[in-house]
Design a binder for these strands. Structure first.
Length: 581
RNA sequence: GCGCCCGUAGCUCAGUUGGAUAGAGCACGAGACUUCUAAUCUUGAGGCCGGUGGUUCGAAUCCACCCGGGCGCACCA
C-alpha cells in the first residue's frame, strides 16, 4: 500500500483490480459496467470492516450465479495483505475484515495529509460555477435568504475539496422594476434628509430605515438639486447609487456568515452589453424563439388579462408546460430573457453550472434548464446544469409563524440573527437538514436552547482533543506514531469512523449535499465523546496515562488525527473549530 | 385544475443513491462528575417508514394511483 493513500481509495482500487484479474482469467466477461459497484462499510459492524456488492451487481449482466462470482472474487481479495478474512454473506455480499494495522496506517495517512485529508481529485480540476444568494439589491439580507446562502457556500467548499475549480457567483438583479422602486424610496429619504417632512413612506415604496443613510449621503453630495426635479432627471443616478450602497450592505451581511463571492454579475451590464439580444438572434436563427400568443394564466385569472403577441422561447420542446416570453410588451426583457443570456455567459467559463434557488422559484426551473440545454447543447454536448432548490424556512417566534415582508419593513435581518446566536450556530443549523425539506427556525428555541445545538457538540469534541493535547504538552508528553500497535478495539472503532471521511466528501460532493458532512461530524463527535467517557470510570482508558509514555503517545496521536478530521469537516461547513469552550 | 418538494419513534430529523435486524437528538424512566473540560456518557421504553398496488434476489429508497402538508402557476422578480 502506498504511504499516504487513503484506505478508502486503496480498497476501491483493490476491488477494481480483483475484477480485472477475473476478467484476465476469463472468469468474468469484459466490458461490464462497474458504476454500481460499491465498497463501503456495512451498516452492522459485526459484518466486518468493509463490504462490496460487486458480485450481486455484476452477476446478472455477466450471466453468472452471484454466489459463484463471489467465490471467485473472494479468491482474489484474500490475496491482499491487509485483508484478514473475506466471507460471502446473504445474497452475495462479500464482507472483508482488515488487519488492525491497516486501519492504523490510516492514522498515518491523516497525519501525512493534514488539512488535505478528505480532499480528492474526483473533480479532475473541472470548473463548476455555483450561483447562490443573488438576493435583489433592494435591502439588507434577511433570514429568508440565509439557507440558500449557507448551503451554496458549503457546497462550493465541498466541490473544491472534491477536486473542482469553483466560481462563487452572485447575480445582481439591478435591471428590473424593483430597483426603480428602490431609487424612488431613496429619493424620499433624500428629501427627508434635506429637511422636508415626508411623513409616512408612500405605499409601494420600501419603508425600511436602512435607506435613511443613503438619503443623507445623496443630500450631502447633491444638495437640493433633485429635490423638486422630475423623476427622469434623477432616477438612473439614484438607482445606481442606491444599488451600489445595497451591495455594500449585502456583502457586509454575507461577510458576517463568512461568505465571499468571487464574482458579482450585473443584469444591467449584461443588458447594456447586448447579451440578451444576441441570445434572441441565435435562438431565432435556430427556430427556438418565435412570435406567438401567451397562454392565459392557469391559476387565478386577472381581470385585465388579454392575449398579446410576444417573442416566445420554445421551452415546451424541453419539457416545460408552455413557451415562455423573453420580452415584455413594452419592449423590455423579461427576467427570463435576461437570465437565459446570463446562463449562457456563465457556461462559457465553466464545465458545469449549479444554481441555488429558493423553492418559491421552483416554477421557473424548467424554462431555465430548457434554455441552457438549448443554448449550450447545439453541439450535442450540453453543459451540465443543476438547479438545487432549498425549501422555505418558516420563521417562528414563540411557537408562532412569523411573517416577513420587505415592503412592510418588518423582516428579520440576517445580521440581527447572527449577532444573537453567532455565525457557527446559524451555519450549522442550516446544514443539519437536507435542503429539500422545509424547516422551522424558531428564534426563541435557537437562542435559549443554543447549548443543545449540535454545533456545540461537534465543537466540544474538538475542544476536548485540543485541551488534552495542551495538557499533555504541559506534562512533557507528545503524540507519537511509534507504538500505534498498543491501540485496542475501542480506539480502532474511532479510526474506522474517521476513515470514512474521504469517501463521504466525494459522495456528498457528487450528490451536491453538504448536509452529509454535518451529520458525519455529529457521528464522529459522538464516538469521540463516548470513547472519552470510558476514562471516567477507568483511568487507564484515558488519553493520558501518566505511567505509560508509549501508550499515551499513541493515544495522543489518535486524538490528534481525529481532531484533524473534525477540523477538516468543520472547515468545509465554514464553522470554526474552537480550541476551548 | 397543473407543476415541483415533503410525509420515517410523542416532537425535531438522519438513513451512505436499491442492501443485511430502519437509526440519532429532544422529551420520558434508571444510572455515571475528587476527571484528560459532565456543553459529556451509559442504559430502558418508544415504528403499519402516510396508504394501496407494481418492478426484483432484495424497496423507507424506484414506478403508478390515492391521502395529507408546503411552494408556485402574468409580460412580477
Amino acid at each position: 500500500m502506498t504511504d499516504s493513500k487513503t484506505l478508502h481509495a486503496a480498497f476501491a482500487g483493490h476491488v477494481s483490480a480483483a475484477l480485472d484479474a477475473l476478467e484476465a482469467a476469463g472468469t468474468l466477461p469484459g466490458g461490464l459496467n462497474r458504476a454500481n459497484v460499491a465498497v463501503e462499510p456495512p451498516r452492522d459492524p459485526a459484518h466486518g470492516d468493509l463490504a462490496t456488492n460487486a458480485a450481486m451487481v455484476l452477476a446478472k449482466p455477466a450471466g453468472m450465479n452471484p454466489r459463484a462470482l463471489a467465490e471467485a472474487l473472494v479468491g482474489e481479495l484474500t490475496k491482499i495483505p491487509a485483508v484478514t478474512s473475506a466471507e460471502i454473506a446473504g445474497p452475495g455480499f462479500i464482507n472483508l475484515r482488515l488487519s488492525g494495522g491497516a486501519w492504523l496506517e490510516e492514522l498515518r495517512a491523516i497525519a501525512a495529509l493534514g488539512e488535505g485529508y478528505g480532499r480528492s481529485s474526483m473533480g479532475a480540476g473541472t470548473t463548476v460555477n455555483v450561483e447562490y444568494v443573488s438576493a435583489n439589491p433592494t435591502g439588507p439580507m434577511h433570514m429568508g435568504h440565509c439557507r440558500g446562502a449557507v448551503v451554496g457556500d458549503a457546497l462550493a467548499a465541498l466541490l473544491e475539496a472534491a477536486g473542482h475549480k469553483v466560481i462563487r457567483e452572485y447575480y445582481v438583479n439591478d435591471a428590473g422594476a424593483q430597483v426603480d422602486v428602490l431609487a424612488r424610496s431613496a429619493h424620499v429619504r433624500y428629501r427627508e434628509a434635506l429637511g422636508e417632512a415626508v411623513g409616512e413612506i408612500p405605499e409601494g415604496l420600501y419603508p425600511g430605515d436602512y435607506l435613511i443613510p443613503i438619503g443623507q449621503e445623496l443630500a450631502k453630495e447633491f444638495g437640493d438639486t433633485y429635490a423638486k426635479a422630475a423623476e427622469g432627471e434623477w432616477l438612473v443616478l439614484f438607482r445606481t447609487r442606491a444599488v451600489a450602497a445595497m451591495l455594500v450592505m449585502i456583502k457586509a451581511d454575507l461577510a458576517l456568515l463568512g461568505i465571499h463571492h468571487d464574482l458579482f454579475s450585473s443584469e444591467a451590464e449584461l443588458q447594456a452589453a447586448g447579451k440578451p439580444a444576441e441570445a434572441e438572434a441565435w435562438l431565432r436563427a435556430h427556430d427556438l424563439v418565435y412570435d406567438g400568443h401567451l397562454e392565459a394564466p392557469k391559476g387565478k385569472m386577472p381581470d385585465d388579462w388579454e392575449p398579446v403577441e410576444l417573442p416566445l422561447f420554445r421551452s415546451t420542446n424541453f419539457g416545460d408546460d408552455q413557451d415562455r416570453p423573453i420580452k415584455k410588451s413594452d419592449g423590455n426583457w423579461t427576467y427570463f430573457g435576461a437570465d437565459l443570456a446570463y446562463h449562457y455567459q456563465k457556461a462559457q467559463s465553466a464545465d458545469a453550472l449549479v444554481d441555488i434557488w429558493g423553492a418559491d422559484h421552483a416554477g421557473t426551473v424548467k424554462r431555465i434548464k430548457a434554455a441552457v440545454a438549448a443554448m449550450t447543447g447545439a453541439d450535442g454536448n450540453p453543459t451540465p446544469f443543476e438547479v438545487k432548490l432549498v425549501q422555505m424556512v418558516q420563521l417562528m417566534k414563540g411557537g408562532q409563524p412569523f411573517k416577513m415582508s420587505k415592503r412592510a419593513g418588518n423582516f428579520v435581518t440576517l445580521a440581527d440573527v447572527v449577532e444573537m446566536v453567532g455565525k457557527d450556530v446559524v451555519r450549522f443549523t442550516m446544514l443539519t437538514r437536507k435542503p429539500d425539506a422545509q424547516m422551522d427556525f424558531d428564534f426563541d428555541k435557537v437562542v435559549e436552547a443554543s447549548k443543545d445545538n449540535p454545533v456545540f457538540y461537534v465543537q466540544y469534541a474538538h475542544a476536548r482533543i485540543r485541551s488534552t493535547l495542551r495538557k499533555a504538552a504541559g506534562e512533557g508528553m507528545a503524540p507519537s506514531g511509534d507504538h500505534l500497535d498498543l491501540l485496542g478495539e475501542e480506539e480502532l472503532a474511532l479510526v474506522k469512523l474517521a476513515a470514512q471521511f474521504p469517501r463521504l466528501v466525494e459522495a456528498a460532493a457528487a450528490a451536491r449535499e453538504p448536509h452529509r458532512v454535518a451529520f458525519f461530524l455529529y457521528d464522529l463527535a459522538g464516538a469521540l465523546h463516548g470513547y472519552w467517557n470510558l476514562g471516567n470510570d477507568k483511568p487507564e482508558k484515558r488519553f493520558i496515562v501518566a505511567q505509560d509514555g508509549k501508550l499515551t503517545g499513541a493515544r495522543l496521536y489518535l486524538a490528534s488525527q481525529i481532531g484533524q478530521v473534525v477540523r477538516n469537516g468543520l472547515a468545509l461547513l465554514g464553522v470554526e473549530a474552537v480550541e476551548e469552550m
